[in-house]
Write a protein that binds this DNA or RNA. Structure first.
Lengths: 333, 333
DNA sequence: TGCGCCCAAGAGATCGTTCTCTCAGCTGGA
DNA sequence: TCCAGCTGAGAGAACGATCTCTTGGGCGCA
């Protein structure tokens, strides 16, 4: 009933442990007959390398931790990082690396560093959400490389791995998209003040509008949620009842804004154009479907995984790649 | 630069390896001073048990595989199993067990059984979606216990671990909820024929309506997606333009049905009542918010985790728990 | 006072793989 | 024909924690 070991395989094939290991490792410098015998024995016995033994011997753990805030996982906001998760997991799958989930929002804040010290994983990917940015401090002294998807509030070491999308460029894209269709009375629903990506989107938006000679002063803030988007939209309408274009800097906020605009009797897009940011599932399923600035979330996850793997293997790579944002044209503009 | 081992801790504390191990394992039969010295040394050095060594020596891997279809992860349907995932991960966290993600929808179908044979995990939880039911065959001979969340198409061994919600009872609940508010011209959008849970919902619905003396014959089928729900609703309306109540047996289908009803000029709930099934995020965010039959998804994940852990530890537990469904009253009825 | 028992702590073996070292045998060139 | 060099295969050690076995010392009871 015990699982077969390398010794069992070697015995069955009539060779030594070492030879069997050589065959299974790739088979350089091994007699063809022996090689075949070993392969056959391994298959017959249903042999699979004991990963603990391999790791102990000095190999890589063959696993990467994915650190995410579980509280948000099953909300609409969760589709943000399920996309990243998927990209990361796909890339890891291709390299035969196991993704190990680590909830970031539990009380026991020492648990994550402890886990990283146990050598159970070779590296980690932090999929950043608002609440877990505090991890940056805790993980500063991690023994294994860590990739951040999205830039945390706190300053990281200069050689930190950070995968981000071009938030500044995305803000500019949103400005141009609205300007190009003739909108001139514009407002922005910005994200939380304390998030750098949120601020970058605003900067891109303002700089581009300034370049185009359009007023960019009307700004309200939301918290990247649907409700806060609705509330922000209401405030914006109160101040500027005549506006004809809104950039909501997240799709959830845009979708909340849509409802308020429609409830106020305005039609989207004929009266007011709305453009979102992220391109998560809600963007496609809202009514009307949202034109939005797409962050390549899945690519970001994939790149984060590939980068951290490269660093683990000692390869030289760009440690702070910035992925391009693009306009996804739907029906809200 | 190398991580400290137990030997380092023992040396720093001036004791033997064995004593240090005893202290860190819980500290029975150890002198108080030595115990304190070991604890201190471990803390100072930042010692953390090497999990590979512990596992190799015969311990448990301390990890459970979570097998899910990644393709759906970042869609709206994904909120179904992100809830289960969250419940499972929370339960595992409480037992200091690591959740390891295993994508179920890749080409290499041998990869999952191989992984389970490598002793890297002590058990597995399969979060079932339509497409991955074929895994039941592949995993029949798994060396570690597997918990199924949702019942697969294929017959499992009688001692298999299956966590499911009361689909039959849920169907009956839906029937009663609509009957109670006076609806009599009812239709059902059933799920795929080949899924047992989908059939159970229909049976519960029909049996309850029969008991109440209400006609239960109008049935159309969908594929549990929003689009298929819209299409099914259109067919149902064509056949029964006068209906006043619909049970869509998933929230996604209900939300698709809502749109078609509204587009046809009917108001929900004043003209037609709609009740969904699942209680995923879309139910709360659709317009109007959906009354629905709640599956306790997070609980199902939690129970699956607890059950598989119990089986691993050799404890006696109910291997096929069925969790109750409940009515969540919102604004579509 | 002496014997036996119990408790605390160390020594050694073990888990399964991988890697290095060693050795035997064969080939080829001088 | 002899030796150098190479190739293929086995023996042994190491990874780090844990568990059993052993030993020494102290205490209690007769």
């Amino acid at each position: 009933m015990t699982r077969p070991t390398l010794v069992d395989v070697a015995r069955a094939a009539g060779v030594s442990r070492a030879t069997a290991a050589r065959v299974l490792a790739g088979g350089a410098n091994v007699n063809v007959q022996m090689s075949a015998a070993v392969e056959h024995a391994a298959k017959t016995l249903g042999y699979e390398t004991n990963s603990a033994a391999r790791v102990l011997r000095g190999g890589r753990a063959g696993a990467i931790a994915l650190i995410i805030a579980f509280n948000e996982l099953d909300s609409l906001a969760g589709t943000f990082f399920t996309s990243v998760l998927k990209g990361a997991a796909d890339a890891l799958y291709a390299s035969e690396i196991q993704p190990v989930l680590l909830p970031a929002d539990h009380d026991d804040s020492d648990r994550i560093p402890r886990f990283l010290r146990s050598r159970a994983v070779d590296g980690a990917i932090v999929i950043l959400q608002h609440e877990i940015t505090h991890l940056a401090e805790t993980l500063a002294t991690s023994p294994v490389p860590i990739a951040w998807v999205g830039r945390p509030r706190i300053a990281l070491a200069p050689d930190a791995i950070v995968v981000d999308s071009d938030n500044y460029g995305g803000g500019a894209l949103a400005a141009r998209a609205l300007a190009d269709i003739g909108r001139r009375r514009l407002g922005i629903i910005a994200g939380p003040h304390d998030m750098e990506p949120a601020r970058d989107r605003v900067r891109g938006w303002r700089d581009e509008l300034a370049r185009l000679g359009i007023d960019s002063s009307s700004t309200v803030h939301g918290e990247f949620t649907m409700e806060s988007g609705s509330a922000a939209m209401a405030r914006l309408l109160q101040r500027h009842p005549d506006l004809d274009g809104v950039f909501a800097s997240s799709d959830l906020m845009a979708s909340g804004a849509l409802r308020v605009l429609q409830a106020s009797g305005r039609r989207v897009p004929s009266d007011v154009s709305v453009i979102g940011f992220d391109d998560v599932v809600v963007a496609a399923t809202s009514d009307p479907p949202l034109t939005t600035i797409r962050q390549p979330l899945e690519d970001m996850g994939r790149v984060a995984a590939e980068t951290v793997l490269a660093v683990i293997q000692g390869r030289q790579v760009d440690r702070q790649p910035i992925l391009a944002t693009t306009v996804v044209q739907r029906e809200s503009t």
